[in-house]
Design a protein around this nucleic acid. Structure first.
Lengths: 192, 192
DNA sequence: AACTCAAACTTGACAGTGACAAGATTCGGC
DNA sequence: GCCGAATCTTGTCACTGTCAAGTTTGAGTT
């Protein structure tokens, strides 16, 4: 509905983000330059400056979107799974990995060192929402394991996050199988 | 002795690597440029080309050294620890994390996506040696857990690697506590 | 309905990057 | 002692992000 109207002037910001996402999918992070983004959006090389003061700001906007989709990927997987703690942990892990595998460049961007502005409110919120998914599946699982102490529960949370994150990272770097499920933390931790 | 002799002509390759390591520690990956490396080594901007055909080759050499030090970090930690499987797993995890925390830029470089030439023999060897450390601690621990099937043993190996890797990555990104130990996989897996 | 003015966009420039092409230099082997 | 070849320098190119100016456009006010 009509938000696309007006090109010479229009909703450039959204067009830039869309163009950047397309380039990212096609050529990865190194292929993403402000000038290419501008060109693909049909504007001059300095046009983005009015919507994003610098490259980091554009990357931050992209990462924010990425975190939102990432959260959705975990939420979708969880919704399809059974509600018991073990299944939920497994599902979140699959959602984590699925996003990384289908959008490796976005995933790398989300966790790239200094390229992002973590002072940005929207990015912080999107990141926190993603982390909340992990807290939501971790707590019931800690109960199942009978972990009472806060320290133990936090440690379990970190272990679940770290293993999912590490596996995803190694997988998109070709160090883990390109298909198949991640190691089943839930099974290893609960059985026996 | 005296390998340093001769400067106008000399052992430039080693000097370049040393300069690059210094810059990496000081300013991180984005601060590392061929021209700065050349300047710090006291040669012209095009001098590195004869020793490293392109930037990727230099980064690959750096990553190779990084993997060697990384392996040593794990080996040192293991040597200081008791020989039982649990302690060895814990120690390797600490060594993994210790290296990442004290050389974050090198660690990131080692696992940076397309910046490295994994066809390079030296890099492959150094990477394999590091991975071997994980296999060495994983096998006895699998025995301890009574895992017989090859699939299960491989899955455990991957879980240990992934959790160590993920925690290290998240730690140097500020998403995990800056000090303290990683989650104790060995304890979670064996107790109860 | 005309006018103003700020926002959006363009053009142009600058320092810095990696890579390449030629030249200059210096060392090692005969 | 001298010649060839490896090493290093100088110069240049296309490309990058960022800034400083101009130019266009559209929305709000009177």
């Amino acid at each position: 509905m009509g938000k696309k109207a007006g090109y010479h002037h229009g909703n450039l910001r959204a067009a830039l983000v869309e163009a950047a996402l397309a380039i990212l999918e096609a050529d990865g992070l190194p292929g993403l330059t402000l000038r290419r983004v501008a060109a693909q959006a049909g504007v001059s090389h300095a046009a983005p400056a009015h919507h994003f003061p610098n490259l980091q700001a554009l990357l931050t906007a992209l990462a924010t979107i990425a975190f939102e989709r990432f959260t959705q990927s975990m939420a979708r997987a969880r919704a399809r799974a059974k509600p018991d703690p073990e299944s939920q942990v497994r599902a979140a892990g699959r959602g984590y990995l699925a996003f990384a595998r289908s959008h490796p460049a976005l995933f790398r961007l989300m966790f790239s060192a200094g390229d992002l502005d973590w002072q940005d409110q929207a990015l912080q919120a999107a990141g926190a929402a993603a982390f909340r998914q992990l807290q939501e599946i971790s707590a019931p699982f800690a109960d199942l394991l009978g972990l009472a102490g806060e320290t133990d529960r936090r440690e379990l949370e970190r272990l679940i996050w770290a293993s999912a994150h590490g596996y995803a990272h190694l997988a998109i770097d070709g160090k883990m199988p390109a298909t198949g499920n991640p190691p089943d933390v839930a099974r290893f931790l609960s059985k026996r």
